[in-house]
Design a protein around this nucleic acid. Structure first.
Ligand SMILES: [Zn+2]
Ligand SMILES: [Zn+2]
Ligand SMILES: [Zn+2]
Ligand SMILES: [Zn+2]
Lengths: 162, 162
DNA sequence: GAAAAGATGTTACTTTGTATCGTTTACTCT
DNA sequence: AGAGTAAACGATACAAAGTAACATCTTTTC
């Protein structure tokens, strides 16, 4: 099972998460000749500020406050950057929260699901063949051809259980 | 595996689905001393008009047009009925679509997931131990205690594959 | 029948997400 | 380098989804 739950749910040097994510994003975009512009990078950095999913308007607020640039960042700007980052697999959307979270393993193909802590909000991403197969199997029995999956688990993280 | 996919994805006498759902809803609410008022029943019937999930504002429109009563039904009315029906387990919300669908097996406890056809929109509900266990297992390996799950699979239904 | 609880009507509002169009920036090709 | 094209951004306005608050009406309880 591929997961960042060991990191996300425990004390760690989060600056390394951020650096790694930005670094990897630059690499990937470079390789794909996709343009990771300053705005897009700022949105990505803002989302990576923690392991808690961030709503689009939270991103708007964060960027409007903390940014050096004078003018307020507007929703379409942020949504466009979000779209780009989702397309590049650098962030994921959590449907059940209307929020976005950084992907810890962009580039590698992974069919992922999420563990969302209902106490602290921290969210880990997992990729597990067992889950994958179980779903494809169940769908297959209904003669249903699986395209994409949304799997979001809400519960209590190890840290919050103590 | 418990599922209504054999029915939902194939030609069938849908009036029987509707009747069964309304009948079961009355029974359940009666047993629980919950009040299935005319509005709530109308919302339930509107959602059960097909096996395609219906958005809240689609329900508003449907009810405003087809209803005998003169005045337009307003969003809070519908949302309140939706809340009641979700609480009673008579309908489910599909996060990835912001839409609602009737539950074919209300009353019985079931941890369910959904197969959403991206062509025709028809959606089947499934409940499968394999999937359940795989998810709980994966979460367990991350020391994560599962509360509720959102599992929504998008793909092609048997009918649309031909 | 009075009091309490529950359901509905109504207004106004919040949150989330887009369409559109004009301008600017970056890449491409000579 | 400079014209031409494509991509990105700024700004306004809007659509879609969901809710808070309060008044009114209905049902239940005692
Ligand atoms: Zn971190
Ligand atoms: Zn937690
Ligand atoms: Zn049917
Ligand atoms: Zn179909």
């Amino acid at each position: 099972m591929l997961t960042n739950s060991r990191i996300a749910y425990h004390r760690h040097d989060h600056k390394r998460c951020i650096n790694a994510a930005l670094c990897r994003a630059r690499e990937l975009c470079d390789a794909r000749k996709a343009r990771l512009t300053p705005i897009r990078e700022t949105v990505l950095k803002t989302i990576w500020a923690s392991h808690r999913p961030l709503g689009a308007y939270e991103i708007v607020d964060q960027m409007s406050q903390s940014e050096t640039s004078a003018h307020r960042v507007l929703p379409p700007t942020v949504y466009r950057a979000i779209q780009f980052l989702v397309d590049q697999g650098l962030i994921h959307r959590l449907s059940s929260l209307n929020a976005y979270i950084g992907c810890p393993f962009p580039g590698n193909y992974h069919s992922d699901f999420f563990l969302i802590c209902e106490q602290c909000g921290s969210t880990a991403e997992c990729s597990d063949d067992q889950v994958d197969h179980a779903v494809i199997n169940a769908a297959g029995r209904a003669n249903f051809q699986v395209g994409s999956k949304v799997i979001e688990i809400v519960g209590i993280c190890p840290e919050c259980r103590g």
